[in-house]
Amino acid sequence: MAKVVSIKRGLWEQLYLPELVRGVGITLKHFFVNTFGSKEIVTVRYPEEKREYPPRFRGVHRLMKREDGSVRCVACMMCSTICPAQCIYIVAGERGDGTAIEKVPVSFDIDELICVVCGMCVEACPCDAIRMDTGRHYPPVDRRDQAFMQKEDLLAAGGPNVAVQGGAGPDWRESYRPLGSDRQIYDREGKLAKQIKGS
C-alpha cells in the first residue's frame, strides 16, 4: 500500500523568496566553478581527458594464443551458444597438421555492434581463449561491415597464456601437489612411481 508522506514546510520555506535566492546561488556557484576551472569539477573533458577504468572493465575482445602462436580456441562454440546477442559466428575445421589438436576455428567473427558487452563469452570459454581485457573501446565505424572483428583482428591483440591447454595432459597428477595430504603417484603400468609427503 502506498504510503502518504506529507512534507512539512516551516515559515521560512513558505516565504518562498529566500529559498529561491538560495537556489539561484547554488546554480551560480556551479557556473563559476565550471567556467573558471577548478579541481572540484566532477565531469571529465572527454575525449581529451579519459577516466581510468576499473581493472575488470570489459573492453573489445581478443583471442589468446598457444605456446606455438596458433589460436587457443578449439571452436567449441560455448561462447557463441551463451552469447545473449548471438553475435559470434564461428566456422570450425580440422587443424590437420598431425598434432594432437583436432578442431580449430577456420573463421571467428564477432559483430561488435550487436555485442552487448556482457562478458558471458569470456565466462563460458573452457580454454581461456577469448578475453575482454584489452581495455579498449570498439572504435567508431563508417560502414556496417567494419563492425566485425575477424579472427586475425582478434588474434592481433592476443598473447600467450600461462595455463597449459587441456591441463597438463593425462599425467597432470605428477606435477600436482594437493594441499595437506600424502599422495601416491602411479606410472602407466600401475607401479608406485612416487610418494609425495603432505605438508
Binding site: 583436432e102 602407466r188 600401475g190
Partner: peptide, 11 residues
Amino acid sequence: IDHAKVRKGKK
C-alpha cells in the same frame, strides 16, 4: 582414479 588414462587412437 589416480592412474593415468590409457591412451588409444584418435581420429
